[in-house]
Amino acid sequence: MMKKSRRSFLKVAGIAAIGLGASPAMNFASSDSPGTALAVKGKNEQALTAHRWGMVIDTNKITEEIAEKITEVCHKTHNVPDFKHEVDAEKYPKTRLANHKQEIKWIWEEEFHYAFPEKEDEYLTEKFHDLPFLVTCNHCKNAPCVQACPTQATFKREDGIVIMDFHRCIGCRFCMAACPYGSRSFNFRDPRPFIAETNPDFPTRSKGVVEKCNLCAEQLAKGELPHCVQASEGAIVVGDLEDPESDIRVLLKEHYTIRRNQSLGTEPSVYYIV
């Protein structure tokens, strides 16, 4: 009998200990200082907005040179590491060799039959063989990556941009398996040794999180166009897909466009004029 009561005492004590442990956490969660309650959060006045952001890439206007410039400016401003960059041994001693299969890219060139594998034709128009096709995140309307993410670290903004919360990502890489466009990269290692010049206006990433194109959300917030658009010499246009008067809709009206692997129902927001 003695044994039994000691046992139940321990059980009760254990439950009580859990309760005690939880109380500071609860206090923290409910702490709302009076100062923050009165504050107002809002958007920058000059911010560019849309109901659903979309992109049109005019493949006729993209040359090898422009494509390279676009990739470079995007990767530079977003602190995307370049594994070919020679590591500063003084600043980052003992950096191990990079595995190029673990590279990170936001926007890059692909040949037509890789960018559009389902449109591979036996007798393809000659010019498509060597045209550089720029591929990036499609900011899909029905994004499989958003659906897959178990923490909502990848989510869809009201304006259609599929964006990542690097603070929340647990690095499970489910989104990478889900993305049918290979648009996502994982930080297999700390990227900093491989960033030639860090742009202070954009964070770098920590190891263990996934990243991808954010449609330059930070630029749009400042009222500026995405870097790729600025560098494209008119080949890339972004705008509101839901506004019939927008530049982008006019382009779509006037040209025949294709999207990557449309048959999957993801509704990509990136269109290609071919």
Partner: peptide, 22 residues
């Protein structure tokens, strides 16, 4: 710390970047 936590959610998730304090 909790203010910064609130801020980062606001910027990343709600795209609100301006904070007018009390």
């Amino acid at each position: 710390p909790s203010l910064l936590d609130e801020w980062r959610d606001s910027v990343v998730r709600n795209s609100d970047r301006q904070y007018t304090a009390a």
